[in-house]
Simulated scan of single mutants.
Amino acid sequence: MLSRSAERLYWLARYMERTENTAKVVSVYMNLLMDLPKGVEMGWQQLLRINGAEAEFYEKYKSAGERNVIRFLLTDESYSGSLFSSLSVARENIRTTRELLPDEAWEQVNEMYLFAKNDLETVSNRRSRVLFLKKILEGCQRFSGLLSGYMSHHHPYRFIRLGRNLERADMTSRILDLASLLLSESRSDELRQYETILWMNILTALNALLMYRQHVRSRVKGDDVLSYLLLDKDLPRSVTRCLVEISDCINQLPNNDALSDRVLELEDYVQGIDTREATQLQLRVILDDLQNKLGGLHGHIADNWFSRVMPE
């Protein structure tokens, strides 16, 4: 298998996961804001923090209102992290690796791209935006199902899993980084009153609400949610589960050198995080460090298997 093909499959998976994550987070955030009364300190700029895109956003827009943030995150072709930009790069990666993937996978991504391109202007309207995001989410989930059910689970599929789970772990850590702000002792009494709603929406954003209720079996509390999303070994979007998946892929790929040890070190680091003992400030530092370590792992993967590092 050629190095450039492995790299394209890896980035195909990352960008498709990024497309799904963006659609899911925006959709859930819209529902959250509708659940909260006016005056509660939650605004659209929080979505920019999740994506680490505040500086880039304010280079183009003066205010972080709904219309501007939605345009930036969903349709802005000059922002590499927007939904449409992610989907466009995913389409290009699958176009150049079609011989390694089922025809249905290419057709699915191409149909999603054409749908998004033709309907970009509709996202300014809330009702149309809901339908747009629903269609994108269904397409991403169908794509994942096609690969899982149609592809042999050998090296090409392992690079897809590798990219998907690294991107997924990164997004979970970003959402938890923002969520940790909710533990701040300076939060308002009004925000404290609606804390359960906020944490439920965070679980929903990571497709984890039902599993939380089944396995944690307690009312939704901030510390429990953070611990569950970081440490649970079975939840698909927990950081620990993503690292287990990454480790499994690396161990089955050739020439993995010291990468297995690096992932084990990262797993130990995550398992050592105590969300109940750490202060809110300490937790934010820990989560920032985790994101840097995930970025470092990507760098080692790229150096080990890819001929060059494609821009994120």
Results as ranks from 00 to 15, higher is better:
54 E>P: 04
290 L>W: 01
172 T>H: 06
299 G>Y: 07
222 G>P: 02
57 F>W: 11
287 L>H: 02
71 R>S: 11
115 F>Y: 15
305 W>S: 03
50 I>E: 01
189 D>G: 07
76 D>S: 12
48 L>N: 03
190 E>R: 11
219 R>G: 12
297 L>W: 06
308 R>L: 13
268 D>C: 07
150 Y>I: 02
217 R>L: 13
225 V>E: 09
142 R>Y: 10
155 H>C: 01
101 L>Y: 05
113 Y>L: 03
131 L>F: 05
94 I>Y: 04
136 I>M: 11
306 F>A: 07
212 Y>R: 11
66 E>M: 12
270 V>E: 11
62 K>E: 14
185 E>W: 04
187 R>G: 03
161 R>S: 08
41 E>Q: 11
95 R>I: 03
47 L>N: 03
306 F>H: 06
110 N>K: 14
96 T>I: 02
127 R>I: 09
139 G>F: 02
217 R>E: 14
274 D>F: 05
117 K>P: 01
274 D>R: 08
71 R>V: 00
221 K>I: 13
251 N>M: 13
86 S>R: 07
298 H>A: 13
194 Y>D: 04
275 T>L: 02
217 R>F: 08
256 N>T: 10
148 S>D: 15
184 S>G: 10
27 S>C: 04
274 D>T: 09
155 H>T: 13
190 E>N: 09
297 L>C: 05
51 N>A: 13
104 E>W: 02
208 A>L: 08
118 N>D: 15
21 N>L: 00
280 Q>K: 07
